[in-house]
Amino acid sequence: MAEGKIKKVSIVVSKGSLEGVYPGLIMANGARMEGIEANLFFTFFGLDAVVKNRIGKIRVATVGNPAMYFPPKNGIRIPSILGMLPGMSAFATWYFGKTMDKLDIPPIPEFVEMAHDAGVKFYACKATVDMFKYEAKDFIPQLESVITVGDFYEKAAGGEIIFT
């Protein structure tokens, strides 16, 4: 093992698609599994992952993704013009959800709860909250607080920062 174990990670989640939200959650939860302190900071569209009536509606983006194949391995490429058809995003989301469940990767709402119980701290970006006009009551109970970018750097001090 390399010298100097990572002690803390602070991960910025800026995208609100399924593939935008999962990596941050997996990395933060995975950090806790290794005894590493973990903060998640949700900004811009990534904020959906901590908004009560949005957290259950996070989907795979099937448009503008040149790596969209079905099935993912050895499949046919799904061009944006097909990806934009009604139901495509819902189907892709369902498909990935099913595959992930088999690997014990929970759906996002359950994953947020699990990561929170594991000690991951959840924060929302104040600039985004102001811009989207959200209020405290709009957020899931796991959200610690709405913080400024300055607060974020303070919380991230002494650790690694990862932007996703």
Partner: peptide, 13 residues
């Protein structure tokens, strides 16, 4: 429970 598991085996349950 998740919390309890982390408490029982701190630092990588």
């Amino acid at each position: 429970g998740t919390k309890e598991f982390y408490d029982l085996f701190p630092g990588g349950p």
